[in-house]
Amino acid sequence: MSTQTEMSSELSKLTPVLEGIGLVKTYGRVVALDGADFALYPGEVLAVIGDNGAGKSSMIKALSGAEVPDRGTVKLDGQEVTFTRPGDAKAAGIETVYQTLAVSPALDIATNMFLGREERKAGVLGSVFRMLDGSGMRRKAKEQMSSLGIGTLQNMGQSVETLSGGQRQAVSVARAAAFGHKVIILDEPTAALGVRESAQVLQLIKNLRDKGMPVILISHNMPQVFEVADRIHVQRLGKRGAVITPQTVTITDVVAIMTGALQVPVEEQTLGPVRVPAKTAGPIKTGLEEAAG
């Protein structure tokens, strides 16, 4: 009983790691975000679900610097931040797997993984001649792949356009997992994956969570969402429609909320944190973190 109260008092003290307040984003006449609120708490897995066009991708783009919202605020650890480009959010430790994957087809796997944060050779070659440490980056990329259990990608010098959709998704996920040290955002990361590969991404999400890393997962796969999410943010018509937990709502109800068939009372639209973050929170060892800093 006492642990229960301890837990709830601990939960009530939590500040969101990443928060969006009243986000508005329009594309011409299309209103993608219509005053959307969003909160991700420390150490949790937050699923974001919603119909196509509900503004899920637009929201995470506004949170990760890929798009600048027309209005609204973004807070990181309670502090207001302005991300004007993806590099700003990356510098703050927010890594994103975009729905479009954002990999460069003509470049190889290692170059893609280290794009924008390349490592140079030691000594004069690196400092004066700016020579990249190609073999070092390929080795680290390989290590990262194996640590994530990605066995089908052997040759890190292989160009990405020769990969299948699932393999490209793997590259994108591996890159995010390697460099994210604050928040990891996954926008439909399993859309192009088979059953076993999806299961592996799910396992990766659980591993990250167990290390204290907060994860945002956008997915259409309800069984997956219900298996891994602590809370579920339902996006509807460019706004937050509801926040629920897999324990209190059934998949059928969730679908009804998504489509608007089931109305959610206003007081239930802002469910607070439910998970006490893992104690090991902090930099996650992935073998690549020197590159991130």
Partner: peptide, 9 residues
């Protein structure tokens, strides 16, 4: 687009 999202200006 991919380059921009990867953090390249």
């Amino acid at each position: 687009d991919a380059a921009r999202l990867a953090g390249i200006q």
